[in-house]
């Protein structure tokens, strides 16, 4: 529970910081914080906690951006499930596979967002945007390893402190 709360807090903070810095950076060079947080949640948290965290990240991204409420939340839930499936087959703990996987996931995210927007909002897609999407996918991929490492380090530390607390409880028991 503490692990989930920590990952949620860091993910939400990353989203807010990203939004604050966005006016000074070209969007294509800004990694998708919500997607990175979702991947980290998939790798660190349990399935149920991860699903809820992914929905919260997507929902927050919807509120802070101009998308329909639920649009990115749906994608995050799907992406968390995809990440968990791939993590059971590939070693996503290593840098390169994770980078490549997240870059592909980011492209898929863009494509799905376009499809959703066409379906729900009747918006058209300009091919000129494809290059921007690819650059952003690469940047997001590069940031995937540090983001998941950070999440894993925090989770390990919390688990360790929890284990220590449980051990301390045993010290008051009378000696046998």
């Amino acid at each position: 529970m503490r692990k989930a709360a920590a990952v949620l807090t860091i993910g939400l903070l990353a989203l807010v910081v990203e939004g604050a810095l966005a006016p000074w950076l070209p969007i294509r060079f800004v990694p998708d914080a919500s997607l990175l947080a979702t991947v980290a949640a998939a790798l660190v948290l349990g399935p149920a906690e991860g699903l809820v965290a992914a929905a919260v990240f997507g929902f927050s991204a919807d509120v802070l951006s101009g998308t329909l409420l639920g649009q990115q939340a749906m994608l995050r839930v799907l992406e968390l499930s995809i990440t968990r499936v791939f993590a059971s087959q590939l070693d996503l703990g290593r840098g390169l596979p994770l980078t490549i996987f997240v870059a592909f996931l980011s492209v898929a995210d863009g494509a799905l967002l376009v499809m959703q927007s066409r379906f729900f909002l009747d918006l058209s897609f300009h091919w000129a945007e494809a290059s921007r999407l690819l650059v952003r996918a690469l940047v997001t991929g590069v940031f995937a390893t540090p983001a998941s490492s950070l999440a894993r380090a925090i989770a390990d530390r919390l688990e360790e402190s929890q284990a220590r607390r449980e051990m301390r409880l045993d010290t008051k028991r009378p000696a046998l």
């Binding site: 399935p47 149920a48 699903l51 809820v52 929905a55 997507g58 329909l68 409420l69 639920g70 649009q71 939340a73 749906m74 839930v77 799907l78 499930s81 959703q116 729900f120 909002l121």
Partner: peptide, 21 residues
Amino acid sequence: RLPLLFAGLLLLTLILMLSDR
């Protein structure tokens, strides 16, 4: 429990999208 949670979240997002639209 997990498939239910997954389906429930997807349904919730779909409802939110439709109502927001």
